[in-house]
Amino acid sequence: MQEVKATMAGSVWKITVKPGEVVEEDQDIVILESMKMEIPIGAEDDGTVKEIKVAEGDFVNEGDVIAIIE
């Protein structure tokens, strides 16, 4: 199991996968937006998306868990 974490504080701009979806390493899971910068957060490993813990528009802090991949 891997936790996908926010690398910066900001809001969730786009969620690019759905629970149950099979993802590859480095595939974008969400795109965060902060201070005019959009940062894609990718999967660290291949797996299946178990849970997405945020919704589009949510505010996250650096280190918050965004999704869980199995």
């Binding site: 690398t7 910066m8 504080a9 900001g10 902060s34 201070m35 910068m37």
Partner: peptide, 13 residues
């Protein structure tokens, strides 16, 4: 800039 000096990711707060 309010940002990390190495990754250049924003650092609001």
């Amino acid at each position: 800039y309010a940002e990390d000096p190495v990754t250049f990711f924003p650092s609001p707060g």
